[in-house]
C-alpha cells in the first residue's frame, strides 16, 4: 500500500488519514440508461494489477475527495488530483 500521499491541499500525509472509496475509472451512466449499464457500473469491476486510479477521501485532513493514480504492485504513486478537477478534466475530453 502506498503509505505517503501528497494531497494537493494539505501536503504529504500518511495513508491513515485517508479512506479508500474505490475505482475512479468507471463513468456513471445517465439516469435513463439501461439496467445492464447500471449493473455494470455498480457491480462489475476489473481487478487490475499495476497502474490504477482510485478515489481517496481525505477524511482527517481537508475532507476532499481525491483521485490517486498509483501502482498497486510497486506502491508507486504517480499523481494525486482533486476529484472535482478530475471530473472537469474528464468532461473536457
Amino acid at each position: 500500500m502506498a503509505s505517503l500521499i501528497t494531497c494537493p491541499h494539505c501536503g504529504t500525509r500518511p495513508k491513515e488519514e485517508f479512506s479508500i472509496r474505490g475505482a475512479a475509472a468507471p463513468k456513471r451512466p445517465s439516469p435513463t440508461a439501461k439496467d445492464e449499464a447500471w449493473h455494470v457500473y455498480v457491480y462489475v469491476r476489473d481487478n487490475p494489477k499495476g497502474r490504477y486510479q482510485e478515489y481517496w477521501h481525505h477524511v482527517a485532513g481537508c475532507r476532499r475527495f481525491l483521485v490517486v493514480e498509483r501502482d498497486n504492485l510497486t506502491h508507486e504513486v504517480f499523481g494525486v488530483t482533486d476529484a472535482a478537477e478530475f471530473e472537469r478534466a474528464g468532461a473536457d475530453e
Binding site: C10, G11, T12, P14, V59, A60, G61
Partner: peptide, 24 residues
C-alpha cells in the same frame, strides 16, 4: 502528529487539519 513540523516545511503562521493523537 505524522507530518513534518520542520520550520522550513511547516512555517510560522501555517495551519492544517491533521490527525493528532488519533483525533482530527
Amino acid at each position: 502528529v505524522a507530518i513534518d513540523l520542520h520550520p522550513e516545511v511547516f512555517e510560522e503562521g501555517h495551519s492544517a487539519a491533521m490527525l493528532c493523537c488519533h483525533a482530527e
